[in-house]
């Protein structure tokens, strides 16, 4: 089971503090959305994100997965906006009663390119950061351990539940339950949901006991196994990026370059 998209590696990008990568992703996203020039997001993507991907050595995982995610989004946006962009009038092509309009396509292209930067930045973060390190960094920045617990558990529980649901389905099918067709599916509902829900409830009770005996939620000061590397240079880089993002927002509000 693949729990995360994390690609194991030890590149300089992998070793960065997750917060630095998070600030990077936010900054490129904010910058992409702040200016209206259509060439701006692709430029950002090429000069900021692509080099980082190459340095991290994850390009063979990054680009295929990224394209698989981004292309459908971009196509959907183009079709939706192309046909239904409000106030557009220059018709490019007509398909039956629907008309593909120029203004809509321009807006869609711009949105898709901005989303490309957003997805690229955050995907790079996910790809080069162990989830555990990410969570540790969050807690060490002052996020409450309980919040981090909930987020971490939520990230992992879905595949675990899916695995259990499959186990239950197999157990019931092995008792002759047919789950094909609409009737079969409806009839399978109780034998499937019952064990799943009751099992989850039992687990919650047991887990509460386990957490209690392992000291979770005690008021004492927590420490962390996972060391999150940080440096003055990274702190400076984060400050600089935050400044860039802020400048971009201000420029956008003032109407510079739009």
């Amino acid at each position: 089971m693949d729990m995360s998209s994390h690609a194991v590696g030890d590149s300089p990008v992998h070793r960065l503090n997750p917060l630095t990568k998070l600030v990077f992703a936010v900054t490129v996203t904010v910058s992409a959305f702040a200016f209206t020039m259509i060439w701006w997001p692709p430029l950002l993507f090429c000069v900021a994100i692509v080099p980082m991907v190459i340095v991290s050595g994850t390009q063979r995982k990054f680009f295929p997965t990224f394209l698989a995610l981004w292309v459908p989004v971009a196509l959907t946006v183009c079709l939706m906006q192309g046909f239904f962009y409000p106030g557009a009038h220059r018709v490019v092509a007509g398909i039956g009663p629907l008309e593909l309009k120029y203004e809509g396509l321009v807006f869609a292209t711009q949105t898709a390119l901005r989303v490309m930067v957003l997805m690229g930045g955050f995907f790079l973060l996910l790809l080069t950061t162990r989830p555990g390190t990410m969570m540790s960094a969050m807690t060490q920045r002052g996020m409450s351990p309980k919040t981090v617990y909930v987020v971490s558990a939520a990230l992992q529980i879905a595949p675990a539940l899916a695995g259990r649901a499959q186990g239950i389905m197999h157990a019931q099918q092995a008792r002759g339950l047919s789950v094909t067709g609409l009737r079969g599916r409806v009839r399978a509902l109780v034998p499937m949901a019952g064990p799943l829900i009751l099992g989850a409830l039992t687990d919650v009770g047991d887990r509460a006991v386990a957490m209690e005996t392992r000291g979770f939620g005690t008021t004492r000061h927590c420490t962390y196994l996972t060391e999150v590397p940080d440096s003055t240079a990274q702190r400076a880089a984060r400050a600089a990026m935050e400044l860039c993002a802020l400048t971009a927002v201000v420029a956008n509000v003032l109407g510079v370059l739009r």
Partner: peptide, 30 residues
């Protein structure tokens, strides 16, 4: 406990981090 799965915190991403979970809660020096 009998069922090891329910003993896990469910919130740690590696075996090493899971073993450390209780020590982290107690604030044991790194």
């Amino acid at each position: 406990m009998q069922n090891p799965f329910n003993q896990l915190s469910g919130a740690r991403f590696s075996l090493r981090e899971e073993i450390a979970f209780g020590l982290e809660n107690l604030g044991v020096d790194r």
